[in-house]
Nucleic acid binder design. Structure first.
Lengths: 334, 334
DNA sequence: CTGTTAGCGCCTTCAG
DNA sequence: CTGAAGGCGCTAACAG
């Protein structure tokens, strides 16, 4: 009906011949409106296909009925989590809003604090932070972190058993006869990266293998940042026969770098990843990796947040879920 | 510094001993503030780690610098597109916001109109709609649709060659010797579903195979809605030897239903899907499917939207990208 | 039962 | 160069 731009509550009020307040009452089913008036207003609303502005409503009211998923970028790890998070939201009455903090590629530390400040108190009632770079201070709304920056002293969180997961990856390589095992680490700001390195070190030590510092590099969890260190590892005078890359994206990139150097995987180089994102099964050769239960992590994080939003105390504020080694085609006995 | 809840511009102004207006000017780099004052205000802002509320800012200003991706739910198809959309946004100066319209599971027709009305004009400067259920009227902001409801008369859009894609799937099955080929259709409100059915019908006709109406069912593109029709097809007195399910999720579910009925895939039943989402390579057996270039679709849709946002006219308002048959392990010669 | 009055947090004239 | 006033669209008191 109404052509130009947005239809506002004022337009509706004028068209219906009532005040703005009355329209608002009708929309929100508040008492004190004659049935006939309400009826009439409703029909005008339908006619004009009016929908109240989320922004204006949020600004005024406390509750918005929206949960924010704050992530650095839309990459496979985050989008897998999204599926689990979304599944757990169904039927809760909350809408889901995924917000890419812009910090993105540069990995600007603090993106989650900025994003949270921009959205909390106004647009969202609660938030799930995916791989935050720091412990966020009280944001005034319930917050749950997935794969967080720090340990158990901080915000409620869900992660998987990174230590045991890394150990299983390295044990697998050792069992295949590998002794020179390269390590491509993750984002130093994340606890997961620290624990995966710790798992690597301990497992080598337990097997009586001396750690060669030359074989330990920082990959940053992203293809672009993993490229150079992977290349360095593979062009060492005495290169590793296997590499444990601590997430799938960097593992896949490592395989590509190896192939570009004329190395065959797994004949000349074994590679193990971490995460088990769908992409790990789509590359050639298919990647051996440590599986994290990503959907379940998302689901449990959302359940924790919903509990918090209900004003209840969650059974546990830190959930740690098990990992599992998935052996595919990128590893092979020496 | 400031403990309780959000820090507002008023808090900053008070702490800095200036007016709200001055703080606003500093934030937005507007003329008319003494260098020393600006400096001071900036330091207070940093101290209090103040961040202006997206909501309040949006309400007041025209431009928000945010692009909305509106989707019915976070399932594999949408999240794959998200990766491409996000990649194309990098460096554009826009932030990305993915909004799940709530209509979700029930597939409530019109979710995108509602979502758009709620967000446009206030929160987002432009939008990409994923599988909208109808042609959206002028929303006052640029809108691009992916896999749209209707044909070329409507909004700018990007999709893939559904007709040719469906044909390639059915031709593949015919080449394998199949004659009784079941069809599990998609969402009737989408053009893609119509075109895929058309491709199925034409290809059968071209091969001189009479169409058995009993073999044509509506699967709705979702696992839950595909379950029953798949079951019906497989328990027919004269069941099909192959099924073309028009998206991967329903194809995967079809394989599960078959297995639950004691049928082996591909020995007893061949199955072809559509989309080539990552999940299609993760199931057992791996799914033969028609690949859509999902990342590229997302990228091109975003580029089109960015062009529109710049106020320019896009080279073409309807992009149709090629599909490709990916033969894996779920199909076999009769 | 209805309309008027105040803001939510912010930005933008427009006086001082 | 700075602050006071008005209003974005909406909801929540309070009067009438």
């Amino acid at each position: 009906m109404e052509p130009r731009g947005r239809v506002t509550i004022t337009d509706v009020a004028r068209a219906a011949g009532v005040s703005v307040a009355t329209v608002s009452k009708v929309i929100n089913d508040r008492y004190g409106v004659a049935a006939s008036t309400a009826e009439h207003v409703r029909s005008v609303i339908a006619d004009m296909s009016y929908e109240s502005s989320l922004v204006a409503r949020s600004l005024r009211s406390q509750r918005t009925g929206v949960i924010g998923i704050l992530l650095a970028e839309f990459e496979p790890f985050s989008t897998e989590l999204l599926k689990g998070l979304a599944a757990a939201t169904a039927g809760s009455g909350y809408e889901l809003l995924a917000w890419s903090g812009g910090g993105g590629p540069d990995g600007h530390v603090g993106w989650e604090r900025r994003s949270l400040a921009q959205l909390s108190g106004t647009l969202i009632d609660g938030a799930v932070l995916i791989t935050p770079t720091l412990v966020v201070p009280d944001a005034g709304i319930p917050v749950v972190a997935i794969d967080p920056h720090a340990g158990s002293e901080s915000n409620p969180s869900v992660d998987s058993d990174n230590l045991a997961g890394a150990a299983s990856a390295v044990e697998h390589l050792i069992a295949l006869g590998h002794r020179r095992i390269g390590f491509l680490g993750g984002r130093p700001d994340l606890e997961s990266a620290r624990l995966r390195e710790e798992g690597y070190r301990r497992t080598l030590a337990a097997a009586g293998i001396a750690l060669d510092p030359d074989l330990v590099r920082v990959g940053g969890y992203r293809p672009e940042t993993a490229d150079a260190p992977a290349h360095e590892l593979l062009t060492l005078p005495d290169p590793p026969t296997a590499i444990f890359a601590t997430n799938d994206l960097s593992a896949i990139r490592t395989m590509q770098v190896a192939q570009s150097l004329g190395l065959r995987v797994p004949e000349d180089l074994s590679v193990v990843g971490f995460d088990n994102v769908p992409e790990s099964a789509l590359c050639t050769p298919q990647l051996t990796t440590v599986s994290q239960p990503l959907h379940r992590i998302g689901r449990e994080a959302m359940e924790m947040l919903l509990t918090l939003l209900r004003g209840e105390a969650p059974a546990e504020t830190h959930r740690r879920l098990p990992t599992e080694l998935v052996v595919r085609a990128s590893t092979r006995a020496l």
